[in-house]
Design a protein around this nucleic acid. Structure first.
Ligand SMILES: [Mn+2]
Ligand SMILES: [Mn+2]
Ligand SMILES: [Mn+2]
Ligand SMILES: [Mn+2]
Lengths: 220, 220
DNA sequence: AATAAAATTTAGACAAAACTAAAATTAAAA
DNA sequence: TTTTAATTTTAGTTTTGTCTAAATTTTATT
């Protein structure tokens, strides 16, 4: 099956929301897609017509298996392109999302297969998010929020759950990226901020909000 | 200025036709774009409105300076992506056009600048066509049709003027590509076909039609 | 110069994707 | 359990890009 750019964007949006909540509702998707609820309803009819969606009027909706496969396909393309932009074209990680948002809609199975090989079949994108393989299979890793890590334990940054350009820009200033080694030294009870050591550099302090959105795994 | 995908395709189509004939007419552009004359007229109004076109009803049309700059920009993107697909992703040269036809519409100045650098600022695409620089400047080379080359002279293939997939597939079978060294050995008066030597391989025979569409320059 | 043919434009329609405003349905509060 | 509020859908428009059929203009031919 082949989808329009708009359909692909909606499919991806629904997939993202249903990961957390199961059923998705119209207003939430409208917010996610930066559009109006009425536009969402229009698209839901099309996606149901194309048998990608379980949907009953007023009752919420979610992707069926065909829909999930379609979503994973778009996610795969998006993350491979992001990897390309950062690893090959040397973009900063906070600049690649809007470009990948367009590149993900180029439809050529051979293009993506060749791109995947050219990049060395990467498992994670520049933000630490897993890249589905061509069958939609996603690699999983055990990870924890930095805010739950005990003091003095060495950990490696594995992903970032808030991926706004603002957040990524902030982490860039802290020199925190995927793969960076960290140690939590101290927690300040006043506002929950953490003193951490980044790689072999001086210690610095990050807010509780930042800590909650940085995910890490054990050093290997 | 920013253009829609459809506008960019039309601009490129007009540019291509006006290279040869100066003024372009509606039916020719409709044929080039595989669309209907009425659709062309509609688009001409939009492009004139955007001040890219010299156009008077019933009198033909051509791009003005702004239009030419816009066209060169799309051509630049198209050819850089083709170069990427062949040199980095190892596509055959007869498979890249339709994919580049989509990639050329991704609008990000930084993306194209970085891609250009990543590719080593190439001057020619996989079919030997010149790649405009970011100011729209095009490198020129002296070249002649293979059908006009004297016998025994060593020449190098520089471009191909018929770029249908069928033609490119045929040249692939002859192992003729951009940069290939050739020598014309003999012309058969019966049908104008040429006996040629390709690189250091055995001699073979190509039709007059093929010879006319292969362009070469002196060996350097 | 009149007529026929070809090229081009206009008029009107359609599909996709968005919107606003109003109606319908469901959920929450009094 | 009414009443109110929030959510969702419908109805009707708009924009972009396409189309067909008909009208207009230009070009070619008698
Ligand atoms: Mn997108
Ligand atoms: Mn990402
Ligand atoms: Mn194109
Ligand atoms: Mn080319």
């Amino acid at each position: 099956m082949n989808f329009t750019t708009s359909e692909e964007n909606y499919i991806k949006g629904i997939f993202h929301l249903q990961q957390e909540n199961g059923l998705v509702n119209t207003n939430a998707l409208a917010a996610e897609m930066q559009t109006r609820p009425a536009s969402v309803t229009d698209m839901l009819k099309k996606l149901k017509e194309k048998k990608l969606l379980q949907y009953e009027k007023y009752k919420g909706f979610k992707l069926n298996e065909a829909g999930k496969k379609a979503a994973l396909d778009v996610v795969r393309k998006h993350r491979l392109w992001e990897f390309f932009l950062v690893e090959k074209l040397k973009f900063d990680w906070d600049k690649v999302h809007p470009i990948a948002e367009e590149l993900e809609h180029i439809n050529s199975v051979e293009l993506i297969q060749r791109l995947d090989n050219f990049l060395g079949n990467p498992s994670f994108d520049p933000h630490g998010d897993p890249i589905p393989d061509k069958n939609g299979k996603i690699p999983v890793i055990k990870q924890q929020s930095l805010s739950e890590i005990p003091f003095k334990k060495n950990v490696t940054v594995s992903s970032v759950s808030n991926q706004t350009a603002q957040m990524l820009d902030m982490l860039k200033h802290y020199k925190i990226a995927i793969g960076t080694q960290l140690t939590v030294l101290k927690k300040f009870e006043f506002d929950g901020s953490l003193e951490i050591k980044v790689s072999k550099q001086n210690a610095c302090i990050i807010s509780e909000q930042v800590a909650k959105n940085v995910f890490v795994h054990d050093i290997q």
